[in-house]
Design a binder for these strands. Structure first.
Length: 427
DNA sequence: TCTGGGGTCCTAGGACCC
DNA sequence: TCTGGGGTCCTAGGACCC
């Protein structure tokens, strides 16, 4: 098959579950699930668990019987570990291509240039074996002329043992055989709604979709769907993004370990999320004009329901935590109602401008610069000594946050905490 | 008892303007 | 009784991704 650009995607297999195995090899070949925050639902499964029919997003309490029966190893999400291993995977991939787009915590697109035509598949295999050797993580690699086809190849590489983890579509004159193997719901860009629509119209495989009339697609799936169809036909519409664009909005929110009823408890949690979100914003060198606070009860519970949100606009762009806090608290005061069991709150920062364009004005409150300086200093300290080495009292004492996440089955911070470093003992 | 969190893009429809 | 047409901007909601 011909084409100009060559796009590979490297995707870690069962990433979180595989991360848990890296420092605990006894788990190889054993079933593993990783749970969401608060140990709520299943968000990662090893192959053994997939084989048992346990689905993504399944509430943990519903599978407890199976867990016992099959001795499934259960882990709370250890994002510190996963994030650190992810960074190492990405660094490894960057030794294989100057153009790498980190697409998610466990996937990256690579442009493959300057490798002899008949050595490319070998090169992809080398990527796979290197990540395995350096980090102990299994990956699958797919390559094609567009991102969508690379994803499709990756999917087959992962699912069909005969490919042994690597599928390079450029090796084949006719790739329709592969498009025919992939059901529409497995195509990148086709979600639940669109796959239902396509099935209703008797469009079953990627091949069927690729043949569809453009007008029909545009009308029912917007230009987004149209792009997918073009990409399936080998015409690139989605470029590799070498440097990640700055975020346009930043959310920080979480479900609580136990329900909250008191304003002051909720206020602490909101303050904490303001600290997290603004920290993230500062790291991309933005300031914002707007914060939205939202609050809700548990929609799955058969108790009085409440959801509300309030936006506060700032008089000037802000990025310091302590400047933002009073606005957030006032927004919360507007929407907080007594008598509900709150399950989740969060904040949303929007309407960004680059920090370099923020002007300090004559009419600013007198201690404004001090507040900014304090926040900057805290960021530096926390970067060096770890999150929340310094933090605002408004977020509540770390040790007694009633709203903290439940994480009962957390593994060690093997790579990021000295006391958790694995030891190798000589016999 | 127990149901994640963080993003993006697109469209339709309303408000407003000339 | 008749009640334009075209443009822009904003927002809410819906689709998708991991």
């Amino acid at each position: 098959m011909k084409g100009t650009q060559k796009i590979a995607i490297v995707d870690c297999n069962n990433f979180y579950a595989s991360c848990e195995r890296v420092f605990n090899p006894r788990l190889n070949g054993k079933p593993i699930v990783c749970l969401s925050n608060n140990d709520g639902v299943v968000i990662a499964r090893s192959e053994e668990v997939k084989a048992l029919g346990i689905m993504m997003g399944e509430p943990f309490f519903k599978i407890e019987k199976l867990v016992k029966q099959h001795k499934i190893n259960v882990f709370s999400s250890n994002y510190t570990l996963y994030g650190d291993l992810s960074a190492r995977v990405m660094m490894t991939l960057e030794t294989f291509s100057p153009e790498v787009e980190i697409y998610s915590i466990d996937e990256a697109f690579l442009k493959i240039n300057g490798i002899e035509e008949n050595k490319q598949t070998e090169y992809l295999r080398k990527i796979r074996s290197t990540v395995k050797q350096w980090l102990g993580l299994p990956v699958s690699v797919g390559m094609g002329p567009t991102k969508t086809l690379a994803k499709l190849a990756n999917r087959l590489a992962k699912k069909k043992p005969e490919f042994n983890g690597v599928l390079n579509l450029f090796e084949y004159d006719d790739i329709n055989q592969f498009l025919k193997m992939v059901p529409v719901e497995d195509i990148w860009g086709v979600g639940r709604q669109y796959s239902a629509l396509l099935h209703r119209s008797n469009i079953e495989t990627a091949y069927d979709l690729a043949q569809m009339e453009k007008k029909w697609i545009k009308k029912r799936m917007t230009v987004v769907g149209l792009r997918t169809v073009y990409e399936l036909n080998g015409i690139p519409c989605i470029e590799i993004e070498n440097t990640p664009p700055a975020k346009k909005s930043i959310v920080s929110s979480r479900s609580f370990g136990e329900y909250l009823t008191e304003f002051n408890e909720v206020k602490e949690a909101v303050s904490y999320f303001v600290a997290r979100a603004s920290e993230k914003m500062r790291s991309q060198k933005s300031a914002c004009n707007s914060i939205t606070v939202f609050i809700r009860t548990n929609p799955f519970k058969n108790s009085p329901q409440y959801y509300n949100s309030a936006e506060a606009r700032f008089p000037y762009p802000i990025n310091a935590t302590n400047e933002m806090l009073p606005f957030a608290i006032r927004a919360l005061e507007k929407i907080f109602r007594d008598g509900y069991y709150y399950q989740k709150v969060g904040v949303l920062l929007q309407d960004f401008i680059p920090t370099s364009r923020v002007q300090v004005s004559l009419f600013d409150p007198p201690n404004r610069l001090n507040k900014i300086a304090v926040t900057e200093l805290m960021d530096q300290v926390n970067k060096k000594f770890g999150r929340e080495s310094l933090y605002f009292a408004a977020t509540g004492m770390k040790e007694n946050r009633k709203w903290a996440m439940k994480r009962e089955k957390l593994s060690s911070h093997f790579t990021t905490r000295w006391e958790d470093l694995p030891e190798v003992k000589a016999k």
